[in-house]
């Protein structure tokens, strides 16, 4: 959304239908903007509508009640939630560091943090294998000291998802922190609060909407994660086969099942976005 439309929207309650201002806006949409805008809208909506049109409604109940689907869905929900939890625990402090502490090379660190956002997820998966795989630079010590190997495990799925999803949270929280007035924290400090107490009691409640928005974004990204997961954690039903992997592999042999599975993911995404829409909007 562009800024000019944002402003009247926040004041939408005060505008009555048919008010002079509204009419002027309505006739004022220039065609060179309207046509590409509608094209853009169709471009985003038509594929989703096609999914609905082609959904095998007749066999849908049978498809959706199959244990494989539930297994994959359950695993997806658990892993995405755990990945969001991991992102919250280490991502919020990281965002605070980036927003509040002036250290040399901060710009570079911020760029590195956002790198997984633009990195193809499969590359992320390969990178994770190099770092945390059984033979990886960190993973080989995990294996020989603690006997922990991460690839092909559910923990591996969580790590792959958190790797891809955490930047969304960090960016969102950092943006909110920058917009939040640091004087509240300073006031807390003058009243004797330590910097950590100020963060906990003042900053956190202040940026809660931003954290929620970031968490939703990260959760949604984690839920849809495919490339890094299949590369790092492999594909085994019930252990590492999340919904996107199940959709991809079902598409090979049984397109109907793939459509049904896709519909489930679409429904879950819509429910989550709708449920948290208000918090998200207020954070924008």
């Amino acid at each position: 959304m562009t800024l000019p439309t944002d402003k009247p929207r926040t004041a939408a309650g005060t505008l009555r239908p048919g008010s002079p201002r509204r009419r002027r806006v309505r006739t004022g949409v220039p065609l060179p903007l309207l046509i590409p805008a509608l094209l853009g809208l169709a471009f985003l909506i038509v594929p989703l509508a096609a999914l609905l049109v082609r959904t095998p409604w007749q066999s849908l109940p049978a498809q959706l009640t199959s244990p494989e689907v539930w297994q994959a869905l359950k695993l997806s929900l658990i892993c995405a939630t755990l990945a969001t939890g991991v992102s919250l625990v280490i991502g919020v402090p990281l965002a605070w560091l980036l927003a509040r502490v002036d250290f040399p090379g901060r710009g570079l660190v911020r760029a590195l943090v956002t790198l997984p956002l633009v990195l193809p997820p499969v590359v992320g998966g390969v990178a994770l294998l190099m770092a945390l795989g059984r033979n990886g630079i960190v993973g080989q010590w995990l294996d020989s000291w603690f006997g922990i190997t991460l690839p092909f495990t559910t923990a591996g799925v969580v790590i792959a998802e958190a790797f891809v999803a955490m930047p969304f949270l960090v960016i969102s929280v950092e943006g909110t922190l920058r917009a939040a007035d640091p004087r509240y924290e300073e006031a807390a400090a003058t009243l004797g609060a330590s910097r950590f107490t100020a963060f906990r009691r003042v900053t956190l409640p202040l940026i809660a909407p931003g954290i929620a928005a970031g968490a939703v974004l990260a959760w949604a990204r984690a839920l849809g994660e495919f490339g890094a997961t299949i590369t790092f954690a492999g594909n085994f039903p019930g252990r590492t086969q999340t919904m996107p992997l199940a959709v991809y592999l079902a598409l090979q042999s049984d397109p109907e099942a793939a459509t049904a599975l896709s519909l489930v993911l679409l429904a879950v995404s819509i429910v989550v976005l709708a449920g948290l829409r208000d918090r998200w909007m207020s954070a924008g």
Partner: peptide, 18 residues
């Protein structure tokens, strides 16, 4: 431990010693 999506993916997992 995993059902890979094609034969090269399966081979790669051994090449990487995973």
């Amino acid at each position: 431990v995993s059902y890979e999506q094609d034969v090269k993916a399966a081979l790669t997992k051994v090449e990487l010693k995973e």
